[in-house]
Computed example of a mutant assay.
Amino acid sequence: MTGLRERKKVDTRRALSDAALELAFERGLENVTRDEIAARADVSLRTFNNYFANKYEAIAYRQAERLRRGIEILRRTPPEVPLWTAISEAVLQPLEDDFRAARGIENSVPSRAQLAETRKLLMRTEIRDALARRLFDEWVEAIAERTATDVAADLYPRLVAATVRAVGDAAMEAYVVADPPVAITTLIREGFAAVAAGLPEPTARTGGKDHD
């Protein structure tokens, strides 16, 4: 019974998050209210308030959930798997699983208008703040466990966790301006591959002047 109850709670959170995203795409997040999100998800405003403090938390929920699942995957990955390979798969697997399971907006090819709205959403400090800092700290702890480093004494696990976040940010920024569109999973994988290789300087440059 407890499992079913928890499953229903997760489904409700996801439905509210999807409704918030759909409405933000349709009219811009600034024009969306909690009442409208609740109505789109076919629940009451009271139910919305039981799950989220505001619309920003609702928008951020899917990403926060993926980050939590990624931490679990990283902790289950065998220790012989190289660090950046393990991290790349831990980040990508929840995203790919959601894409395969999605029935609606997350499984569709984004329009240019949706990409423009995504860019605005990513720039909102409220959205970024809604991804609780404790998730970053949990990533640091998981990385410290895997690398046998000390969270309090060693800089390394925090540098790695910060790099994971930077790869996600860079991939999303590239995703929302890509023309033609490129899969976000492709960009994330490319980002981690570059980090694993030590971020070598590109051998060919585009958009700049050649120098003798």
Rank of each mutant, 00 (worst) to 15 (best):
A196R: 12
L23F: 10
T186E: 09
D129K: 13
I127G: 06
T203S: 13
A178K: 08
A53L: 08
E89P: 03
S17K: 04
I59S: 03
R46I: 10
S111G: 11
R62Y: 01
L74T: 06
D212H: 03
D154F: 07
R14W: 10
G104P: 04
N31L: 09
R158C: 00
P79A: 15
E173Y: 12
R103Y: 02
T12P: 07
E106Y: 15
G28L: 02
T118W: 13
F136W: 07
R134Q: 13
P202E: 04
I87G: 05
E72Y: 03
L16C: 06
P94I: 03
V176L: 06
V109P: 04
E36W: 01
A197V: 04
F99K: 14
R27D: 01
I127F: 14
A171Y: 08
A53G: 15
D129T: 12
P94A: 02
E80T: 11
A113S: 13
T77P: 07
D154A: 08
V160E: 02
T77L: 01
D42L: 06
P180K: 05
G168Y: 01
L83P: 09
I188A: 08
E126I: 06
N49L: 10
Q63H: 15
E126C: 04
A170Y: 11
E80S: 13
K8A: 14
K209C: 03
D154Y: 04
E89F: 05
S17T: 09
D154M: 06
V164F: 00
L187R: 09
T149V: 01
T149G: 05
D179V: 10
T125K: 11
R158K: 11
V160Y: 08
D129M: 07
P79R: 15
R124F: 01
A183Q: 12
R14K: 14
R5A: 14
V182T: 15
